[in-house]
Protein backbone atom coordinates (compact mmCIF):
# COMPACT_ATOMS: atom_id res chain seq x y z
CA UNK A 1 0.00 0.00 0.00
CA UNK A 2 2.69 2.41 1.13
CA UNK A 3 4.93 1.32 -1.72
CA UNK A 4 2.17 2.14 -4.18
CA UNK A 5 1.83 5.63 -2.72
CA UNK A 6 5.58 6.01 -3.03
CA UNK A 7 5.72 5.18 -6.72
CA UNK A 8 2.70 7.41 -7.18
CA UNK A 9 4.64 10.26 -5.62
CA UNK A 10 7.49 9.67 -8.03
CA UNK A 11 5.25 9.46 -11.09
CA UNK A 12 3.24 12.55 -10.25
CA UNK A 13 5.86 15.17 -11.27
CA UNK A 14 6.51 13.27 -14.49
CA UNK A 15 2.83 13.20 -15.30
CA UNK A 16 2.56 16.93 -14.72
CA UNK A 17 5.68 17.49 -16.81
CA UNK A 18 4.21 15.55 -19.73
CA UNK A 19 0.92 17.43 -19.51
CA UNK A 20 2.68 20.81 -19.48
CA UNK A 21 5.06 20.04 -22.36
CA UNK A 22 2.18 18.65 -24.45
CA UNK A 23 0.28 21.86 -23.86
CA UNK A 24 3.38 23.85 -24.82
CA UNK A 25 3.80 21.75 -27.98
CA UNK A 26 0.18 22.40 -28.92
CA UNK A 27 0.38 26.15 -28.39
CA UNK A 28 3.65 26.48 -30.32
CA UNK A 29 2.29 24.46 -33.26
CA UNK A 30 -1.08 26.18 -33.63
CA UNK A 31 0.18 29.77 -33.77
CA UNK A 32 3.09 30.54 -36.05
CA UNK A 33 3.96 33.83 -34.36
CA UNK A 34 4.12 32.24 -30.89
CA UNK A 35 5.96 29.32 -32.46
CA UNK A 36 8.74 31.61 -33.58
CA UNK A 37 9.17 33.26 -30.15
CA UNK A 38 8.55 30.07 -28.21
CA UNK A 39 9.84 27.07 -30.14
CA UNK A 40 8.02 23.82 -29.45
CA UNK A 41 9.59 21.12 -27.29
CA UNK A 42 10.05 18.88 -30.34
CA UNK A 43 11.84 21.70 -32.21
CA UNK A 44 14.07 22.32 -29.21
CA UNK A 45 15.05 18.66 -28.93
CA UNK A 46 15.75 18.43 -32.65
CA UNK A 47 17.84 21.60 -32.56
CA UNK A 48 19.59 20.42 -29.44
CA UNK A 49 20.89 17.27 -31.12
CA UNK A 50 21.64 19.03 -34.40
CA UNK A 51 23.59 21.80 -32.62
CA UNK A 52 25.31 19.45 -30.19
CA UNK A 53 28.71 19.58 -31.96
CA UNK A 54 28.63 23.38 -31.64
CA UNK A 55 27.20 23.55 -28.12
CA UNK A 56 29.41 20.94 -26.50
CA UNK A 57 32.72 22.86 -26.76
CA UNK A 58 30.96 25.86 -25.21
CA UNK A 59 29.50 23.60 -22.53
CA UNK A 60 32.97 22.25 -21.73
CA UNK A 61 34.27 25.79 -21.19
CA UNK A 62 31.36 26.64 -18.90
CA UNK A 63 31.61 23.39 -17.01
CA UNK A 64 35.32 23.95 -16.55
CA UNK A 65 34.77 27.42 -15.06
CA UNK A 66 31.96 26.15 -12.88
CA UNK A 67 33.89 23.17 -11.54
CA UNK A 68 37.07 25.16 -10.90
CA UNK A 69 35.20 27.95 -9.11
CA UNK A 70 33.05 25.47 -7.19
CA UNK A 71 36.04 23.39 -6.08
CA UNK A 72 38.14 26.42 -5.15
CA UNK A 73 35.28 27.95 -3.16
CA UNK A 74 34.81 24.73 -1.18
CA UNK A 75 38.51 24.57 -0.32
CA UNK A 76 38.60 28.24 0.69
CA UNK A 77 35.37 28.00 2.68
CA UNK A 78 36.74 24.97 4.53
CA UNK A 79 39.96 26.77 5.42
CA UNK A 80 38.24 29.96 6.54
CA UNK A 81 35.55 28.11 8.48
CA UNK A 82 38.15 26.10 10.39
CA UNK A 83 40.07 29.26 11.20
CA UNK A 84 36.94 31.12 12.26
CA UNK A 85 35.90 28.25 14.47
CA UNK A 86 39.32 28.12 16.11
CA UNK A 87 39.50 31.89 16.74
CA UNK A 88 36.37 33.21 18.37
CA UNK A 89 37.32 36.91 17.73
CA UNK A 90 37.72 36.19 14.04
CA UNK A 91 34.29 34.56 14.01
CA UNK A 92 32.69 37.47 15.83
CA UNK A 93 34.29 40.01 13.51
CA UNK A 94 33.63 38.24 10.22
CA UNK A 95 30.30 36.46 10.57
CA UNK A 96 28.05 39.56 10.40
CA UNK A 97 30.07 40.91 7.47
CA UNK A 98 29.71 37.63 5.64
CA UNK A 99 25.95 37.64 6.09
CA UNK A 100 25.66 41.20 4.82
CA UNK A 101 27.95 40.49 1.88
CA UNK A 102 25.47 37.88 0.67
CA UNK A 103 23.05 40.64 -0.22
CA UNK A 104 25.52 42.17 -2.69
CA UNK A 105 24.19 41.54 -6.23
CA UNK A 106 27.10 39.61 -7.65
CA UNK A 107 25.81 39.92 -11.20
CA UNK A 108 26.37 43.66 -10.95
CA UNK A 109 29.99 42.95 -10.14
CA UNK A 110 30.54 40.83 -13.23
CA UNK A 111 31.26 43.76 -15.62
CA UNK A 112 33.77 45.18 -13.12
CA UNK A 113 35.48 41.84 -12.81
CA UNK A 114 35.87 41.76 -16.58
CA UNK A 115 37.46 45.17 -16.44
CA UNK A 116 39.83 44.17 -13.70
CA UNK A 117 40.74 40.63 -14.74
CA UNK A 118 40.31 40.64 -18.53
CA UNK A 119 38.07 38.64 -20.82
CA UNK A 120 39.55 35.21 -20.15
CA UNK A 121 38.29 32.56 -17.76
CA UNK A 122 39.63 34.13 -14.57
CA UNK A 123 36.82 36.67 -13.94
CA UNK A 124 34.23 33.93 -14.61
CA UNK A 125 35.88 31.57 -12.17
CA UNK A 126 35.99 34.36 -9.59
CA UNK A 127 32.28 35.09 -10.01
CA UNK A 128 31.47 31.40 -9.58
CA UNK A 129 33.69 31.32 -6.49
CA UNK A 130 31.93 34.31 -4.98
CA UNK A 131 28.54 32.74 -5.58
CA UNK A 132 29.51 29.33 -4.19
CA UNK A 133 31.75 30.45 -1.35
CA UNK A 134 29.17 31.95 1.00
CA UNK A 135 26.61 29.17 1.14
CA UNK A 136 29.37 26.65 1.85
CA UNK A 137 31.05 28.83 4.47
CA UNK A 138 27.85 29.70 6.28
CA UNK A 139 26.60 26.12 6.29
CA UNK A 140 29.92 24.92 7.70
CA UNK A 141 30.01 27.56 10.43
CA UNK A 142 26.42 26.82 11.38
CA UNK A 143 27.27 23.13 11.38
CA UNK A 144 30.15 23.67 13.78
CA UNK A 145 27.94 25.74 16.06
CA UNK A 146 25.09 23.26 16.05
CA UNK A 147 27.11 20.42 17.57
CA UNK A 148 25.54 19.35 20.88
CA UNK A 149 27.34 21.14 23.73
CA UNK A 150 26.95 18.06 25.93
CA UNK A 151 28.91 16.13 23.34
CA UNK A 152 31.69 18.69 23.54
CA UNK A 153 31.60 18.45 27.34
CA UNK A 154 31.77 14.67 27.14
CA UNK A 155 34.88 14.92 24.98
CA UNK A 156 36.42 17.46 27.36
CA UNK A 157 35.67 15.26 30.32
CA UNK A 158 37.67 12.54 28.56
CA UNK A 159 40.56 14.97 28.44
CA UNK A 160 40.36 15.52 24.66
CA UNK A 161 42.09 18.67 23.39
CA UNK A 162 40.65 21.19 20.96
CA UNK A 163 42.16 19.54 17.91
CA UNK A 164 40.88 16.10 18.86
CA UNK A 165 37.42 17.48 19.63
CA UNK A 166 37.35 19.21 16.27
CA UNK A 167 38.51 16.16 14.35
CA UNK A 168 36.36 13.58 16.12
CA UNK A 169 33.16 15.48 16.87
CA UNK A 170 32.82 18.93 15.38
CA UNK A 171 33.94 18.35 11.83
CA UNK A 172 32.02 15.13 11.19
CA UNK A 173 29.07 16.63 13.06
CA UNK A 174 28.97 19.54 10.64
CA UNK A 175 28.93 17.33 7.52
CA UNK A 176 25.16 17.29 7.18
CA UNK A 177 24.94 21.06 7.20
CA UNK A 178 28.04 21.32 5.01
CA UNK A 179 26.52 19.23 2.25
CA UNK A 180 23.30 21.21 2.25
CA UNK A 181 25.45 24.28 1.58
CA UNK A 182 27.44 22.46 -1.08
CA UNK A 183 24.23 21.43 -2.81
CA UNK A 184 23.14 25.06 -3.05
CA UNK A 185 26.60 26.00 -4.32
CA UNK A 186 26.46 23.24 -6.92
CA UNK A 187 23.31 24.67 -8.45
CA UNK A 188 24.76 28.19 -8.34
CA UNK A 189 28.00 27.15 -10.03
CA UNK A 190 26.73 26.59 -13.60
CA UNK A 191 24.41 29.59 -13.37
CA UNK A 192 27.24 31.77 -12.11
CA UNK A 193 29.49 30.77 -14.98
CA UNK A 194 26.79 31.35 -17.61
CA UNK A 195 25.83 34.76 -16.23
CA UNK A 196 29.43 35.94 -16.09
CA UNK A 197 29.84 34.82 -19.72
CA UNK A 198 26.88 36.97 -20.74
CA UNK A 199 28.85 40.01 -19.75
CA UNK A 200 31.72 39.28 -22.07
CA UNK A 201 34.06 36.64 -23.42
CA UNK A 202 34.67 34.53 -26.47
CA UNK A 203 33.64 31.05 -25.42
CA UNK A 204 31.15 29.35 -23.15
CA UNK A 205 27.41 28.68 -23.04
CA UNK A 206 26.67 32.25 -21.96
CA UNK A 207 28.52 33.63 -24.97
CA UNK A 208 26.71 31.18 -27.22
CA UNK A 209 23.35 32.22 -25.78
CA UNK A 210 24.00 35.91 -26.43
CA UNK A 211 25.10 35.12 -29.97
CA UNK A 212 22.01 33.05 -30.87
CA UNK A 213 19.72 35.55 -29.17
CA UNK A 214 21.13 38.32 -31.35
CA UNK A 215 20.44 36.25 -34.47
CA UNK A 216 16.87 35.51 -33.27
CA UNK A 217 17.57 31.74 -33.19
CA UNK A 218 15.37 31.08 -30.16
CA UNK A 219 15.34 27.33 -30.68
CA UNK A 220 19.13 27.37 -30.21
CA UNK A 221 18.67 29.53 -27.13
CA UNK A 222 16.41 26.89 -25.62
CA UNK A 223 18.82 24.16 -26.64
CA UNK A 224 21.50 25.95 -24.63
CA UNK A 225 19.11 26.33 -21.68
CA UNK A 226 18.48 22.61 -21.86
CA UNK A 227 22.20 21.98 -21.50
CA UNK A 228 22.45 24.43 -18.59
CA UNK A 229 19.68 22.55 -16.81
CA UNK A 230 21.33 19.20 -17.53
CA UNK A 231 24.71 20.40 -16.27
CA UNK A 232 23.20 21.92 -13.11
CA UNK A 233 21.39 18.69 -12.39
CA UNK A 234 24.59 16.75 -12.95
CA UNK A 235 26.41 18.97 -10.42
CA UNK A 236 23.58 18.39 -7.97
CA UNK A 237 23.77 14.65 -8.50
CA UNK A 238 27.54 14.71 -8.10
CA UNK A 239 27.10 16.32 -4.69
CA UNK A 240 24.67 13.59 -3.69
CA UNK A 241 27.10 10.88 -4.77
CA UNK A 242 29.95 12.44 -2.80
CA UNK A 243 27.69 12.89 0.23
CA UNK A 244 26.63 9.27 0.12
CA UNK A 245 30.26 8.23 0.04
CA UNK A 246 31.20 10.56 2.88
CA UNK A 247 28.18 9.72 5.03
CA UNK A 248 27.27 6.06 4.47
CA UNK A 249 25.36 5.95 7.77
CA UNK A 250 23.05 8.73 6.64
CA UNK A 251 21.98 6.93 3.50
CA UNK A 252 21.30 3.81 5.54
CA UNK A 253 19.19 5.81 7.95
CA UNK A 254 17.26 7.48 5.14
CA UNK A 255 16.57 4.13 3.56
CA UNK A 256 15.36 2.71 6.87
CA UNK A 257 12.99 5.51 7.71
CA UNK A 258 11.78 5.73 4.14
CA UNK A 259 10.40 2.20 4.25
Amino acid sequence: MKKLANTGNKLLPWALFIVLTSFWQLVSETDEFIGRLLPSPVDIITTFFRELPVIIPHGVVTLNEALTGFGASIVLALLLAVMMDAFEPLYKALYPLILVSQTVPLIALAPLFLLWFGFGQLPKILIVMLMCFFPVLVSLLDGFKSVDSDLLNLMRSMGAGRVAIFRIVKFPGAMMSFFSGVRIAATYSIMGAVISEWVGGSRGLGVYMIKVKNSFAYDKMFAAILLVVALSMAMFKLTDVVQNMAMPWYRLQQRNTGE
Partner: peptide
Amino acid sequence: KTGRVSYMYQKDLLLPWK
Protein backbone atom coordinates in the same frame (compact mmCIF):
# COMPACT_ATOMS: atom_id res chain seq x y z
CA LYS B 1 41.18 18.52 36.13
CA THR B 2 39.44 16.59 33.37
CA GLY B 3 40.31 13.18 32.02
CA ARG B 4 40.26 11.18 35.24
CA VAL B 5 36.66 10.15 35.89
CA SER B 6 34.14 9.05 33.28
CA TYR B 7 30.84 10.78 32.82
CA MET B 8 27.64 9.50 31.27
CA TYR B 9 24.72 11.76 30.45
CA GLN B 10 21.01 11.12 30.20
CA LYS B 11 21.39 11.37 26.42
CA ASP B 12 23.45 8.52 25.00
CA LEU B 13 25.61 11.01 23.04
CA LEU B 14 26.70 8.34 20.60
CA LEU B 15 28.15 9.75 17.38
CA PRO B 16 25.60 8.91 14.67
CA TRP B 17 28.30 8.57 12.02
CA LYS B 18 30.34 5.96 13.89
